[in-house]
Simulated scan of single mutants.
Amino acid sequence: MQPGQILARGVLRALRDLGMSGLPEMPLRPRLRADVMAIGRKGEIWIVECKSGRADFRADRKWQGYLEWCDRYFWAVDADFPLDLLPEETGVILADGHGAEVLREAPHCPLAPARRKALTLDFARRAAGRLHMLSDPRPGLLL
């Protein structure tokens, strides 16, 4: 597993404990894929980008493009990450391969209803496709 995938696993476990359902590697549009996208019980959508270190963070030039695809945006980092690099207008999650905790809540910026509906349907279809792959791994199914 890559460092970002390890962080994502811990984030997904923590989100589940918060009553959210998450998917790793959620495509949003061409060349834009969230490390983790999660939907809460009331339909709130979070995106969490996992950064394994300073170089990984500095190489990410498209993070602001994620803001229009979620109600809340978080960074997930490990205990060694320099937190002062992360923009103050975003949430912060401290994570490892076993779990995570929210250090700084992300501001709530509600999605437009049409975008929320489209994202929710895409999330559901992608989750169903991945579940189907577990029982029928033939090529061509939606991932």
Rank of each mutant, 00 (worst) to 15 (best):
M1G: 15
I6Q: 11
L7G: 01
A8L: 10
G10S: 07
G10P: 04
V11D: 05
L12K: 09
L15F: 13
G19Q: 04
M20E: 14
S21M: 09
S21L: 14
G22W: 04
G22F: 02
L23H: 11
E25F: 03
E25P: 03
E25G: 11
M26I: 01
M26K: 00
M26A: 12
P27G: 07
L32E: 14
R33C: 15
V36N: 01
V36D: 01
V36H: 01
V36G: 06
V36P: 02
A38G: 12
R41D: 02
K42D: 15
G43K: 02
I45P: 05
I47P: 01
I47H: 07
C50Y: 06
K51Y: 03
S52P: 04
S52W: 04
G53I: 08
R54T: 15
A55G: 03
D56Y: 05
D56R: 13
F57G: 09
F57A: 08
R58Q: 12
R58K: 14
K62Q: 11
W63K: 12
W63N: 01
G65M: 02
Y66W: 08
Y66V: 00
W69D: 09
C70D: 02
C70Y: 06
D71T: 08
R72K: 13
W75F: 11
W75R: 02
V77G: 10
D78L: 11
D80Q: 10
D80S: 14
F81E: 06
P82W: 03
D84T: 12
L85D: 05
L85P: 10
L86M: 07
E88P: 05
E89I: 03
E89W: 05
E89R: 05
G91S: 02
A95P: 11
D96L: 11
D96R: 01
G97K: 03
G97T: 06
A100D: 13
V102C: 12
V102L: 09
V102R: 04
R104D: 00
E105F: 02
E105Y: 03
E105C: 08
A106G: 05
P107Y: 09
P107Q: 05
P110A: 10
A112N: 04
A112P: 08
P113I: 04
P113E: 12
R116W: 04
T120H: 08
T120I: 08
T120Q: 09
F123Y: 10
F123G: 00
A124M: 11
R126K: 07
A127N: 01
A128Y: 10
G129D: 07
G129Y: 05
R130G: 03
L131H: 08
H132W: 13
M133W: 06
L134D: 06
S135A: 15
D136L: 15
R138S: 13
G140N: 07
L141H: 15
L141I: 07
L142P: 07
L143D: 14
